[in-house]
């Protein structure tokens, strides 16, 4: 049996159902991300696991024990909040030791554990400072140490990086992941940032309108999106309509040229998904070549993102900013290479 089992979880606020038949099993030590846009229900699921919201129906089992009726302070679950939520009246050391003190630990034990935790987060000398004397990144590290100090069964992270600037966000997400691996603590991480989810997680749950649209590894989610929403939400995806010529082998007419997917597809017209990085400027050995006209050139530093019109359908693709090589210009006719194996058939 999995460490955490969530089954048929539902939550309604008045007439609005914000979480619908949510199911998830999490193994011990796993790092799971709940990824989705604002209002998709991911934070509500997290808050139900933490005990801050009561489910309308469904079960939450931790180590086989139903915790739905337990109060948040009886669940032994550590939580890190977006707004840090450090106690302003307590020093860093007192904040980290708060959970242990509440549990009745002795002062020597608290001192030792606080020292360990501050060492773990790389702030061993800041125990005497108050939260307002720390940067945002430092405050969030302290919040992490505080959540981990009482040795919780599980760690919940509610968009902990959202309030930080871009550079700190990247370094802190690596730190969080390495600390999580070091301690082997089961972790649920809520984020709307797909890059964070893809880079940190063992598995990702993509949520939309209260439903878990897909659960899978980052690679699965990115390369084999199960629904149109997942395909559109995770990464950038070109969607191209294609006419089905032979549904049994997946022979299609795409932007005026034929290609074969070598797998069955529905009859009529299908929507294909294609990542920008799967499109090559020039055929370059790809099995399908289409021609288009450049309509947009965006300079993004090391990469240039281009858009081309394929006779009424637009496709975005990337090319490296190679020194000495000029990128295509607006209105230029180009040949683009595609691999039929990279084309995803998107189902609704």
């Amino acid at each position: 049996m999995s460490f955490l089992n969530i089954s048929h979880l539902e939550k309604s606020f008045g007439p609005t159902r914000v979480v619908k038949d949510f199911n998830l099993s999490v193994e011990k030590g796993e790092f799971i991300s709940l990824l989705g846009p604002s209002g998709c229900g991911k934070t509500t699921v997290l808050r139900m696991v933490a005990g801050f919201e009561e489910p309308s129906s469904g079960a939450i089992l931790i180590s086989g024990k139903d915790v739905v009726k337990l109060r948040p302070n009886q669940r032994n679950i550590g939580m890190v909040f977006q707004s840090y939520a450090l106690f302003p009246n307590l020093t860093v050391a007192q904040n980290v030791g708060f959970g242990l003190k509440v549990k009745g630990a002795g002062s020597a034990e608290i001192r030792t554990r606080v020292g360990e935790m501050l060492e773990l987060i790389g702030l061993p000398d800041l125990g005497g400072r108050y939260p307002f004397q720390l940067s945002g990144g430092q405050q969030q590290r302290v919040a992490l140490a505080r959540a981990l100090a009482p040795k919780p069964h599980m760690l919940l992270l509610d968009e902990p990086l959202s309030a930080l600037d871009a550079k700190v966000r990247v370094s802190l997400r690596n730190e969080i992941r390495s600390i999580q691996k070091e301690l082997g603590i089961t972790t649920i991480f809520v984020t709307h940032d797909q890059e964070e989810a893809l880079s940190m997680s063992d598995r990702i749950v993509v949520m939309h309108a209260g439903i878990a649209e897909q659960v899978g590894t980052p690679s699965d989610i990115y390369s084999r999106p199960a629904t149109r929403f997942v395909a559109g939400f995770v990464g950038t995806l070109n969607t191209i309509e294609a006419e089905v010529l032979d549904s049994a082998i997946g022979r299609l007419r795409l932007a005026g040229v034929e290609t074969i997917l070598n797998r069955p597809v529905p009859d009529g017209t299908v929507t294909l998904g294609l990542r920008p990085e799967a499109v090559s400027l020039g055929q370059n050995g790809h099995d399908t070549a289409v021609t288009g006209t450049i309509t947009e050139v965006d300079f993004l530093g090391s990469v240039i993102r281009l858009r081309a019109d394929l006779g009424g359908q637009t496709i975005a693709f990337d090319t490296f900013n190679t020194p000495g090589t000029a990128p295509p210009t607006l209105g230029e006719k180009v040949v683009l290479g595609l691999r039929s194996a990279d084309l995803l058939v998107i189902e609704d």
């Binding site: 933490a50 801050f52 948040p72 450090l86 959970g99």
Partner: peptide
């Protein structure tokens, strides 16, 4: 949030 943080710490 402070209340929830304290609750999560027991």
């Amino acid at each position: 949030t402070l209340t929830e943080a304290a609750q999560s710490l027991g």
